[in-house]
Design a protein around this nucleic acid. Structure first.
Lengths: 212, 212
DNA sequence: CGCATTTTTGATACACGTCAATCTCCGTGG
DNA sequence: CCACGGAGATTGACGTGTATCAAAAATGCG
């Protein structure tokens, strides 16, 4: 029984993202996909294509019961999402865009499944695993800084996901995240900036040198 | 400057495992490899073969400076280790056997690098990442139970790594691990058993039903 | 047996969790 | 254009699960 996009439950008890979108036709057309922050991309148990993430950051969740989701991993540009669907016919995890995202169907071409390309993806997946593990160890402030580093673009700007998403990734509480980010603002590590279409509390200019 | 196997430093500040073994010749022969618990398999920055783990559990570490190692990930039977060496010419992580381990050179055959097999390894790597992430979230006791579940064989017996290794994996302190395991013994979840060649405090019969 | 390593246990401290109130942002409709 | 309402963010007061420090007890090896 699907819930409507907006429910009475606090966010952390909601069925994670809203998945009203039926991409059935779009999928079979093998077109690139654009997702806004917070949007669901696919749901565990469903079937569909595998994707390569070309921009943005995606959150993957284990979905045990229908109404419960727990953070499993992250994907950043270059990573492959949902490749298990090619083997098992359905997705193992649910995927949600944490920032504006672009995805393209994978594998890209006829010969793409062979050799080097796939090997590189495997190495990249193992690298990613280590990075995500690192976001869940050590002092709270260091975890948040690690996540900020992961989300910051080459121009030194960052669009963060909600405090609750950051909390899920780092295994902290959203109140703790809020306190840490406010402290980073006060110490000039984060400078709030205005970005079109993004919640005012989530976009910053980053000065990681100020952490030292 | 390599340290001798036994140093004055407490274990958690040591260069993680001892890597005196030069496997150069054995490697080029592409023979299967056996490792005892605690033994180093390969070291970050070195070059060598990629491996498929056929039995046991392996710990992977990020090695930043020469004398510092931080937990990065786990590998269990079926997982592929060090595949990045085929691309970059050297290992990204250091690998250490947490239990008795068997490894065989990878890829196994001429055609093994193609298609399904590699795809399955990629899916498996992503699955593993989610499991390791789960070991670093939630209450301390639940993390340890999750790790015990991961190490328990089909016969319901388990050989755990040292308290310090468990602590590194779960991002807890070894004193905390010790307390939790002792409590599990007292509540009959873990029943100490004697296993040949294994430290007495590390082998148990497991009764996970007793946790409920 | 004696010593190094690992584990256990106790006392105490603190980082983060919990609960609850308030505030800010932003979309919606009068 | 402004009032309204809901989601998310902030802040404070207080509690607690683990960390920390220290010392003793087990285990295994030479």
């Amino acid at each position: 029984m699907p819930l409507r996009p907006f429910t009475l439950l606090p966010r952390r008890f909601q069925i994670r993202p809203f998945f009203p979108v039926d991409r059935g036709n779009a999928n079979s057309a093998r077109r690139a996909l654009n997702c806004g922050a917070g949007e669901g991309i696919y749901h565990a148990g469903a079937n569909g294509l595998a994707w390569r993430l070309t921009s943005g950051v995606v959150r993957l969740d284990n979905v045990s019961s229908a109404s419960d989701a727990s953070f499993a991993s992250l994907a950043v540009p270059g990573d492959i999402l949902g490749c298990e669907t090619l083997l098992f016919g359905c997705y193992t995890f649910s995927a949600t865009a944490l920032t504006q995202c672009q995805l393209s169907p994978w594998p890209e071409g006829a010969g793409a499944l062979a050799g080097e390309s796939l090997l590189a993806s495997l190495a990249q997946a193992q690298q990613r695993a280590a990075e995500v593990v690192a976001l869940r160890g050590g002092q709270a402030a260091d975890r948040v800084l690690g996540l900020i580093r992961l989300f910051t673009d080459s121009a030194g700007q960052v669009v963060l996901p909600t405090r609750q998403d950051i909390a899920d990734i780092t295994d902290l509480r959203f109140e703790t995240i809020s306190r840490i980010i406010k402290t980073l603002e006060r110490t000039k590590v984060l400078l709030p900036i205005k970005v079109e279409g993004v919640h005012a509390t989530r976009s910053f200019r980053v000065d990681l040198a100020a952490t030292a």
